[in-house]
Design a protein around this nucleic acid. Structure first.
Length: 552
DNA sequence: GTCGGAATAT
DNA sequence: CATATTCCGA
C-alpha cells in the first residue's frame, strides 16, 4: 500500500521527487529557494504563511517529506508555531539572522537544522538526509505516511549492502559543544561555505538509533594505523552492519541473523577471554557489544595511552568468513565471472573494510579447491586462460557512497540469501554456514555450494534458499517465488511444472547434480552455457523476479 | 615493485 | 580444520 517493491524501485533516484514544503514570507527569497530546489528535482510547495502551510499538511492531500521554514524577527512566532505543530515533518529553519538564541530555540523546538541564508545549492542539496534520518528515528512512534516510503527505501538499499561498510567512525558529535560551535560559526559571517551543506544527520550506522545500540563498536580504528604496515591489519570487517540495520527493522524477517562477522583478534597477550568462543550458544545475541569491544572494537583514546598493552593490540586478526562475508565473496565472484575473479577485484567488489587482498586470495584459494573437488577434472576446460582479454564484465566499478543508486540485481539475491541463512540457533559458532543444517537431498554432497555459473546468482546454486514453512523470509513476498525462480531462472519454460510446484527431490537432485558436475554441458534447465552469461547477467541484473511466473 | 596463485605455516 | 604467511613465477 504505502510502499510496494515497485515503489521502491521507482524511487531509485531517491532524493529526486522529494516533496519540500517551503514556508517563507519573502516571496523573492521563496522563489529563489524554490528554483534551486527544483533544479535538483525536488518538488516544492511554497507557502507564505504558516497557517496555509499547516493546513496543507493537515489536509492530507499533500504529503511532504521535509520543510524549510524561514524565520525572521517579525514573524518568528509563526515560524515557531509551524515548528511546534508540524512535528512529524523534518523541518529545517533558515534565516538571515545570526541570532544564537533564535537558532537554539528552533532546535529546541525540533528543527532538524538551522541554515543561514543565503541557501546555496550545496546546503539545499542534502536536505533529504533529514528525511531519511527522520524516517529511521521515528521507528515506533510517529512516522508520517510520507516518510514510510523513504524509510523502506533506505532499508531496502541497506539490505542490498551496497554500502553498508560505508559508515565508519561514528561522528564525534560533541553535543555539549553545540553552542560554542554555533558561536564560532557566528563569527565567520561569510565563510559559511566552509561548512558543507547541512550538517547532515549522519545516517551513520543507520540502525544506531534503534536498538542495536552498540553497533558503533564495530567501527574500525583506522585512525590509528601507526606502524605503517598496519594498514591492512587494523581491520574490522563489519559486514554486520547492514544486517543489523535490517534486523532492526522489524519488517525484515526478524528471526534470521546468522552473520557474525567478527574479526577475531588474537591478542598475543591472550587476554584470556578467547573472543573466538564468544559466539555463545545464542547466535542472535551475538552482537553484544562486549564482543566487539574486545575484538574489533575501537581502542579509542583509552588504548592509545595504554602503557601496558604494548600496543601489539591489533595484530593478527583472523578474518572470520562468516555467511555474510562469504556471501559477499560469492556475489563478487559471480559478478566478475569466474575467469575474472581475482583477489583484487573481488576485494574491491566486496567492499569490506579491513579485508585485505590476501584474505581474499586465501579464501579464493579455498574456494577453488573446493570447487575443483566438485568438478574433479574438467573444470580446466572452462577455466582460466589467464590472459583472456575477453571481458564480458559488466564489472561495475561502483563508487561507494552513502546512498548509491539502486541496483535491482542486488536486491533480490540479497534478500534471499539473507533469508536463507536463517536458523540462527542451528549453527553455533564453528559450524560452517555452507554446510547448512538441514538441506534436502539436492544439495551437493560436500556442502560447498559454490556457484559454478558466473552469470547466475549464487543464491540459486550456491545458497539454496529453502523457504521455511512459515519462515523468516515470509515477510518478503517475493522470496518464496524468488526461490523457485532462482532455480528456474532464465529457463523460460524448461522445467517441468512439478519442479516448481511440487519439487520432486529426485528430479531436483538429478538436475542440480548434473548441472554442477558437468558445467560444460548445456544446462538441463535450458540455460545457455556460461559463454552467454552476458544474457544471464542482464537477466540477473533485472532481478530474478523478472523470471516467468512459476507456472507456465 | 606489483600481482595472482600455490605451497606451506600457524 | 580455516586462515595466514610465504614463496615463486609472470
Amino acid at each position: 500500500m504505502v510502499c510496494t517493491t515497485n515503489d521502491l524501485l521507482g524511487w531509485k533516484d531517491f532524493p529526486k521527487g522529494l516533496r519540500v514544503l517551503l514556508l517563507d514570507e519573502d516571496s523573492n527569497s521563496a522563489a529563489e529557494i524554490r528554483s534551486k530546489l527544483e533544479e535538483m528535482d525536488y518538488i516544492v510547495f511554497t507557502f507564505c504563511n504558516e497557517n496555509d502551510a499547516l493546513s496543507a499538511i493537515s489536509s492530507k492531500s499533500e504529503s511532504f517529506h521535509v520543510a524549510i521554514v524561514e524565520v525572521n524577527t517579525s514573524n518568528s512566532h509563526g515560524s515557531f508555531k509551524f515548528l511546534e505543530t508540524a512535528k512529524d515533518l523534518p523541518t529545517i529553519m533558515t534565516s538571515n539572522m545570526h541570532c544564537l538564541s533564535t537558532m537554539m530555540k528552533c532546535i529546541a523546538l525540533g528543527a532538524v537544522e538551522f541554515l543561514r541564508k543565503p541557501l546555496c545549492e550545496d546546503k539545499l542539496r542534502n536536505i533529504w538526509q533529514h528525511v531519511v534520518h527522520k524516517a529511521f528515528n521515528s521507528e515506533g512512534s510517529v512516522l508520517s505516511e510520507s516518510l514510510k516510503p523513504v524509510k523502506e527505501s533506505v532499508v531496502s538499499m541497506l539490505q542490498l549492502q551496497l554500502e553498508n561498510v560505508e559508515s565508519k567512525n561514528q561522528i564525534l558529535v560533541e553535543t555539549e559543544n553545540v553552542s560554542p560551535v554555533r558561536e564560532n560559526d557566528h563569527e565567520h559571517s561569510s565563510g559559511s561555505d566552509k561548512y558543507p551543506a547541512p550538517s547532515t544527520p549522519q545516517l551513520k550506522q543507520g540502525g544506531r538509533s534503534l536498538d542495536d545500540g552498540d553497533c558503533q563498536d564495530q567501527t574500525n580504528c583506522s585512525t590509528e594505523k601507526e606502524s605503517g604496515e598496519q594498514d591492512g591489519e587494523s581491520k574490522s570487517v563489519e559486514t554486520t552492519c547492514g544486517n543489523l540495520i535490517a534486523d532492526n527493522n522489524v519488517q525484515v524477517g526478524s528471526p534470521q541473523r546468522s552473520k557474525e562477522t567478527l574479526i577475531k583478534e588474537e591478542d598475543d597477550s591472550a587476554d584470556g577471554s578467547k573472543s573466538e568462543t564468544n559466539m555463545s550458544p545464542h547466535p542472535e545475541k551475538r552482537n553484544s557489544p562486549s564482543n566487539f569491544s574486545s575484538a574489533a572494537g575501537n581502542p579509542t583514546r583509552a588504548d592509545l595511552h595504554n602503557s601496558s598493552g604494548t600496543r601489539t593490540n591489533r595484530k593478527k586478526i583472523k578474518v572470520d568468513w562468516t555467511a555474510d562475508l562469504h556471501k559477499k565473496f560469492l556475489q563478487a565472484v559471480e559478478q566478475l565471472g569466474v575467469d575474472q575473479a581475482i583477489p583484487s577485484r573481488i576485494l574491491e567488489l566486496m567492499k569490506v573494510e579491513g579485508l585485505t587482498r590476501h584474505n581474499v586470495a586465501s579464501h579464493l584459494q579455498k574456494y577453488r579447491m573446493h570447487r575443483r573437488h566438485i568438478l574433479p577434472k574438467e573444470d580446466d576446460r572452462r577455466w582460466p586462460h589467464p590472459g583472456d582479454p575477453m571481458q564480458r564484465g559488466y564489472y561495475q566499478h561502483k563508487p561507494v557512497m552513502a546512498y548509491p543508486p539502486y541496483h535491482p540485481n542486488h536486491a533480490l539475491p540479497t534478500n534471499q540469501v539473507y533469508s536463507m541463512w536463517a536458523q540462527p540457533g542451528s549453527h553455533p559458532a564453528g559450524v560452517q554456514m555452507w554446510g547448512p543444517p538441514s538441506y534436502p537431498a539436492w544439495q551437493p554432497a560436500d556442502g560447498w555450494l559454490w556457484n559454478p555459473y558466473p552469470g547466475m546468482h549464487a543464491d540459486a546454486w550456491g545458497c539454496p534458499v529453502i523457504p521455511p514453512p512459515h519462515g523468516p523470509c515470509s515477510s518478503f513476498p517475493q522470496s518464496a517465488s524468488g526461490f523457485h525462480n532462482a532455480n528456474a531462472v532464465d529457463n523460460g519454460c524448461g522445467m517441468p511444472q512439478s519442479y516448481c510446484d511440487h519439487p520432486a527431490e529426485e528430479v531436483i537432485d538429478k538436475v542440480v547434480r548434473e548441472a554442477i558436475s558437468k558445467p560444460w554441458l548445456p544446462l538441463p534447465l535450458g540455460l545457455k552455457s556460461p559463454s552467454t552469461d552476458s544474457v544471464l547477467a542482464e537477466l540477473s541484473r533485472q532481478g530474478i523476479s523478472t523470471v516467468p511466473p512459476r507456472t507456465h
